[in-house]
Nucleic acid binder design. Structure first.
Length: 358
DNA sequence: TCTGGGGTCCTAGGACCC
DNA sequence: TCTGGGGTCCTAGGACCC
């Protein structure tokens, strides 16, 4: 038996859940995002495949989406419903014989499993998820997490694809580096300035070149991404949060210090609730702020001592805002409360949202 | 043509200490 | 006139992911 990494990813997850409970939407362009009002400041969370044909993508402003497809159906994001469906998906994976499940998000997970026929196992996982939820997913099969994760996209929708050391460059070599998990637009640009555009280019680049550009740690890490290398260990240890935060984009910009302080108060109350639930006080306060139009700042301040007190959190956040000495209108505010580490630290694994070098 | 809300980790450099 | 070497803590800022 050989150990394999499967990456399971739901197809058009939010749209699929909405279509399931509103069957009359099947086959139509459906866009889930914000409060479902495309005149508001909000972005697309998920677009159905029909909506994607109009060029609508997740992360796109709803105002642009509605321009691309005026007849699309816009629906609000309904967190509790997706969370319940997500739990069913993950339970189906955990119930799969021999599976070790590591959550990556609402709608995706790594599954570690021993198999002689991983493609057949992947199809069986697809069936298990469909039987439990009535929803379709795609599955990537790999000999590392990186390869499994990238393979899933090649299998979509409702399919299975395998990437291993043997076919990695054959399949991925001519694709742009941005197709890799962990390389975004900025890293892509910096690589391009060295003439590195494709996965082949990156895989052939010496570590010391990358280290000179990105640092001794990140440089070689990026090189490993190009080769599809990396960890193959799937770890089901529960995730421990480092921080909890809340942010809001205001439909009308905030223009006075009083309005900003009041808005910070609302956010601090939400953060306090999370911290108390977690029973870990806040040790550092992060302020995130976007001035109209598009300048985003974050600022951090350590607290003299850990606290749950929302008044302290607000005062700290407001002080950070004042220090910016910028009286432009404010479009977005966020407060993140970084918690004291749990007993024993963070040696338990953590995958959610992680970019770290494996 | 406009930009969510939830996260995590990395690098650089200054302050300070021995 | 020149200016250690090692360490920790902190802030600013960047990047990426779902």
């Amino acid at each position: 038996m050989t150990a394999w990494v499967l990456h399971v990813d739901m197809d058009q997850f939010l749209a699929a859940v909405e279509i399931q409970r509103h069957p009359e939407l099947a086959g139509k362009p459906v866009v889930v995002g914000g409060r479902g009002d495309p005149t508001e400041r909000a972005v697309v969370s998920t677009a159905s495949y029909e909506a994607r044909e109009f060029g609508i993508r997740s992360g796109m402003a709803l105002k642009i989406a509605v321009r691309r497809c005026p007849e699309a159906i816009f629906l609000p994001v309904d967190f509790p419903v997706y969370e319940a469906v997500s739990a069913k998906v993950m339970q189906a994976l955990r119930d799969f014989p021999g599976a070790v499940v590591e959550l990556l998000g609402w709608d995706e997970a790594f599954v570690g499993i021993d198999s002689e026929d991983p493609m057949e196992t992947a199809h069986a996982v697809r069936r298990a998820v469909f039987d439990a939820t009535g929803l379709h997913c795609s599955v990537g099969v790999g000999d590392t997490k990186m390869r499994a994760k990238v393979a899933t996209d090649l299998g979509k929708p409702r399919g299975v694809f395998r990437l291993t050391r043997d076919n990695w460059l054959e399949v991925m070599g001519d694709r742009p580096v941005k197709a890799l998990w962990g390389i975004g637009s900025q890293t892509s640009k910096r690589l391009e300035s060295h003439g590195i555009r494709t996965v082949n280019d990156l895989a052939a680049t010496a570590d010391d070149v990358l280290a000179a550009e990105f640092g001794p740690n990140t440089g070689p890490h990026i090189g490993r991404l190009g080769r599809g290398a990396g960890s193959a260990v799937v770890d089901d240890t529960p995730w421990i949060a480092r921080a909890h935060g809340h942010e809001t984009t205001y439909q009308q910009d905030l223009t006075t210090p009083d309005a900003i302080r009041a808005a910070l108060g609302d956010l601090a109350a939400l953060v306090e609730k999370d911290l108390r639930q977690e029973q870990r006080p806040c040790q550092r306060v992060h302020l995130k702020i976007r001035f109209a139009p598009f300048f985003t700042f974050t600022r951090v301040r350590k607290l003299p001592e850990p606290t749950y007190d929302p008044a302290v959190i607000v005062d700290t956040a407001f002080a950070l805002y004042t220090k910016l000495a910028d009286d432009r209108p404010v479009r977005l505010l966020g407060i993140r409360g970084e918690m004291v580490p749990p007993e024993g630290g963070y040696d338990a694994p953590r995958t959610h949202g992680r970019r770290g070098n494996p």
